[in-house]
């Protein structure tokens, strides 16, 4: 009975007020729906943190790229006694951090001194699993390496070859590992 009265009263309200009420309800419904969806899909602060880390990484990479573009093209070494460009300790660290690529030449050179790795490498069609270039904070040295895996006469093997990155190749666009000392 009271509900009927309520509806009758609502119906008796002027058209403009009813319409205004409708507008408010629609607005609230939309905002509430968004609120619910935000609870389900919103990633908020966590995403901001992740994006900030990514942005810092990109900024750092950009700085390193700028540095690389100032280096002379050709072979860059970390030791004296050659005609090649000698890297200062500070630049050496930065170049190491900026370097991602280990070309075939450096891998072949390192393999040459690791017979088992060389064997797996050649048997499995010169395939490399993964490469890495890391800066060792304790030793203050750049280490580079790769893993080879495959079947060697019926046995599945996985070997990690790693050593100090003694020289780099600067192409003017990026730097690559030129020589890995794994002995």
């Amino acid at each position: 009975m009271s509900q009927e009265n309520y509806f009758t009263k609502l119906k008796e309200l002027p058209e403009s007020i009813r319409q205004f009420g409708g507008l408010i309800i629609i607005t609230l419904v939309i905002i509430l729906s968004f609120l619910i969806l935000n609870n389900i899909f919103g990633e908020g602060d966590d995403l901001v943190k992740r994006m900030k880390i990514e942005e810092d990484r990109i900024a750092e990479e950009r700085k390193l790229n700028e540095l690389i573009s100032t280096l002379p093209s050709g072979i860059l070494v970390t030791f004296d006694g050659t005609d090649h460009h000698r890297l200062s300790d500070e630049v050496y660290e930065k170049v190491c951090k900026a370097t991602k690529l280990i070309p075939q030449r450096a891998i072949m050179g390192a393999n040459f001194l690791n017979f088992r790795a060389h064997e797996i490498y050649t048997i499995n069609g010169n395939k490399i699993d993964e490469t890495f270039v890391e800066w060792d904070e304790q030793k203050n040295k750049c280490f580079a390496g790769f893993t080879v895996s495959g079947n060697n006469v019926g046995v599945d093997e996985k070997i990690k070859v790693s050593g100090e990155a003694l020289s780099f190749l600067s192409t003017g666009i990026d730097t690559r590992i030129y020589y890995i000392k794994n002995f």
């Binding site: 319409q19 409708g22 507008l23 629609i26 607005t27 939309i30 905002i31 968004f34």
Partner: peptide, 15 residues
């Protein structure tokens, strides 16, 4: 923001 746009468009439709 998406919510503002939708409020505006839907509100206009209603009015």
């Amino acid at each position: 923001p998406a919510v503002a746009t939708i409020v505006l468009v839907v509100g206009a439709g209603y009015l």
